[in-house]
Design a protein around this nucleic acid. Structure first.
Length: 307
RNA sequence: GGUGCCAUAGCUCAGUAGGUAGAGCAACGGACUGAAAAUCCGUGUGUCCCUGGUUCGAUUCCAGGUGGCACCA
């Protein structure tokens, strides 16, 4: 038997990963696993650009709408889900396709993420409350005491990292740094990473148009529906948080829409910076489906090696 | 056609009593292993409209042009 291959379609938001993945899926008769940290929530549809019903009918998709916005989910859970799914699906299919732009989720699926304890909700809430009142300084002091190694590495201005390290130390009783292996684990399958990108000008045009489309598709109604739960982490999401500010009368609707566009552009920039670091990725223009298929076929041939 | 005002970063504008310039927004670069569509860090990107004049030196002063706006015909 040959080692199966997971084709990973990645790239900035709005570039066209969904339709590219579907073309590949049709060609190779593969199902698609979504690598998207927001499409996984069943309540979020318009703002996360989930595939259309037609697209979902054409190709079997996994990990879309499997969680509720009230549930805890993270890159670790995602890795577990992907490993389970690939093991199952490779029985029947090869290659498989993983498509998405959630940087850390994609990395977790491709090379694993360290196992850490899940933090008690109560502890997390307490610490967050303390942060609201006392800001970051006390957490820096705690971290310095509990984990001097990580204290020297961490970005001390980034409260999320500092607090997270503190809560892990408190939860486990050992230094956070002692649990961080940060070492890639081997997968029982080949990885073929296809990056989609284009000129900044074209990308931004696509993003801006897509935001306008989401608005006319009813994004505001979707946001209004979840407005009462706006504090949920899953709703700290571009497209929703700006509309919550409009619903709270902090912005006009137009200002909110412009901010959704800007924040989407900035998100795209961060994705590009992250994905550019991975030298394994082969980059294509999003409409270059023919070449992508040809390239994948070539690579699959050379990858065919006995286990 | 005449008169007046304006022309500085991608946009809106500030400024230089003559020594080549700075804010906001936008943009750009980056970090990041369990909240990641999150969070955090860094960076002015400029024929100061054009051509002459005065001056050691003009984005700044003067003249003429060009473009925009307003008013008068």
């Amino acid at each position: 038997m040959n080692t199966p291959t997971l084709i990973v379609i990645l790239g900035p938001t709005g570039i066209g990963k969904t339709s590219c993945a579907i073309e590949l899926a049709k060609h190779f008769r593969s199902p698609i696993i979504s690598g998207d940290s927001r499409q996984i929530f069943k309540e979020l549809k318009i703002g996360t650009a989930v595939p259309s019903q037609e697209q979902l009918n054409a190709v079997k998709h996994y990990l879309i709408g499997t969680q509720s916005i009230t549930q805890y989910y993270s890159a670790y859970e995602f890795e577990q889900d992907v490993l389970k799914l690939t093991q199952e699906l490779f029985q029947q299919h090869n290659p498989l396709i993983l498509a998405g732009g959630s940087m850390m989720y994609i990395d977790a699926a491709c090379k694993g993420i360290d196992e850490l304890p899940t933090i008690d909700a109560e502890l997390r809430d307490d610490l967050f409350e303390q942060y609201e009142k006392e800001r970051i300084e006390p957490f820096r002091r705690m971290l310095k005491q509990m984990d001097a190694v990580y204290y020297d590495q961490v970005d001390l201005k980034n409260h999320k990292r500092v607090i997270h390290a503190v809560e892990v130390c408190m939860m486990t009783g050992v230094p956070y740094s002692s649990l961080r292996k940060n070492k890639a684990t081997e997968r029982p399958f080949n990885l073929l990473k296809i990056g989609l990108n284009t000129s900044r000008e074209k990308l931004y045009k696509k993003i801006n148009l897509r935001v306008d489309q989401m608005i006319s598709d009813g994004l505001l109604d979707e946001a209004r529906l979840f407005h009462p739960q706006k504090h949920l982490n899953s709703l700290n999401t571009v497209g929703y948080k700006e509309l919550f500010d409009y619903l709270d009368n902090k912005l006009t609707l137009n200002e909110a829409i412009e901010l959704i566009k800007r924040n989407s552009r900035r998100y795209a920039k961060r994705q590009i910076a992250w994905f550019n670091k991975d030298k394994e990725t082969i980059w294509f223009e999003p409409l270059d489906i023919e070449n992508i298929i040809r390239f994948v076929e070539q690579t699959l041939k050379t990858q065919k090696r006995p286990v």
